[in-house]
Design a protein around this nucleic acid. Structure first.
Length: 344
DNA sequence: TAGGCGTGGAT
DNA sequence: TATCCAAGCCT
């Protein structure tokens, strides 16, 4: 791996730029490790603008580790509703409980101790250690890989761990030369504001140190490996009920996609089989069905095509109906889209 | 280690 | 519309 040209100058220019240009973000108001923890978990694979309103509500509802640890898993999941990657909510909750019960409410302050907490991996441990505790340890996320692969003109595949480890060694040297908290955030802030997918090199504080810029090959980095094709799945989604009294919901399995979340009754085809399964699961009899519309929903690795079926059943007082503001759990976006379309 | 795991913004 | 991919982690 190449070295950075004039590394000490590079670090000071980068950190000075950060201190002059950093955004006012809610979790930058104070370096409370709990707030850094919550923000980092929310920001995993999720954009800033999406996270901020969730973060504000979450901190108001669970202002510290103790209040989060004492909360029910359901209430934490509900606060996460719509943010995606719902495992993160469960991990965050478990981490709060571990800190309260195994660390006596005191935040672990080493990378190795942080990494033992659920949901905290290599990046997040480094981010908390450097940002909240100002320790000189690197935190390599997608921004840092984009910035540094260009600065170094390094086209290796950073989805491979050994290459990230090499970058960490290099950054561990650089971070010694300024405030670690500023250095970590400066690299990410540069990636977010300047060294974007389409970089704005003319406003970059370290373009004089950038090998990709010198070679005019910015768009070549970072090198991304090809991604697997998405699997397409088709379902029938059964609408039982009406907009006034609500609809029938069912709970998804406790593991896998959208684990433990609510959904409208949903079955794979063929149609007759789907109807039979619906009748067996709910203990009902279908009187009449009407095909309404198709809803398309794209996940990271799967595509759902959901054919929505309005379903009339024989009178059955044992079924419980729920409206959107009266749900006994957390609803996925895929099915919320269906209900929102019905209201139009 | 490669693939599972959500959602929304940008293009 | 289709594709990419964003402050990743876990198994």
């Amino acid at each position: 791996m190449n070295a950075v040209k004039q590394p000490i100058k590079f670090v000071h220019k980068l950190c000075d730029w950060y201190r002059a240009n950093r955004r006012d973000l809610p979790f930058r108001e104070n370096p409370d490790p709990y707030r850094i923890l919550v923000s980092e978990l929310m920001l995993q694979q999720t954009q800033m603008d999406t996270v901020i309103p969730y973060y504000m509500r979450f901190i108001e509802q669970f202002p510290n580790v103790a209040s989060l640890a004492a909360a029910s898993p359901e209430s934490v999941l509900k606060a996460w509703e719509g943010l995606g990657y719902y495992r993160r909510a469960r991990y965050l909750h478990q981490t709060a409980q571990t800190i309260m019960h195994k660390h006596n409410g005191v935040f672990p302050k080493t990378v190795s101790a942080l990494k033992q907490l659920p949901g905290i991996g290599n990046y997040t441990a480094g981010a908390i250690a450097s940002i909240a505790f100002n320790l000189p340890v690197p935190a390599v996320d997608g921004n840092v890989i984009r910035v540094m692969s260009r600065v170094l003109a390094e086209d290796c595949d950073f989805s491979q761990r050994k290459n990230v480890q090499q970058l960490e060694v290099l950054l561990e040297q650089l971070i010694q030369h300024d405030r670690p908290s500023d250095f970590t955030q400066a690299l990410m802030e540069l990636g977010a504001l300047v060294c974007q997918k389409k970089p704005r090199c003319e406003r970059c504080p370290v373009n004089a140190h950038c090998l990709a810029y010198a070679n005019n090959e910015m768009m070549r980095y970072p090198h991304m490996p090809a991604k697997a094709q998405k699997t397409k799945l088709s379902y029938y989604v059964f609408l039982i009920g009406n907009s006034e009294q609500g609809y029938v919901f069912q709970k998804r399995p406790e593991d896998g996609l959208l684990a433990g979340l609510l959904q409208l009754p949903q079955y794979a085809g063929p149609f007759q089989t789907a109807c039979k399964l619906l009748e067996e699961d709910l203990g009902i009899s279908i009187v009449k069905t009407e095909s309404l519309f198709l809803v398309h929903h794209v996940f990271t690795h799967i595509i759902w095509d959901m054919q929505v079926i309005h379903t009339i059943i024989t009178d059955d007082a044992s079924l419980t109906l729920h409206t959107l503001d009266n749900l006994p759990g957390t609803l996925s976006k895929a099915h919320r889209k269906i209900l929102e379309r019905l209201e139009k």
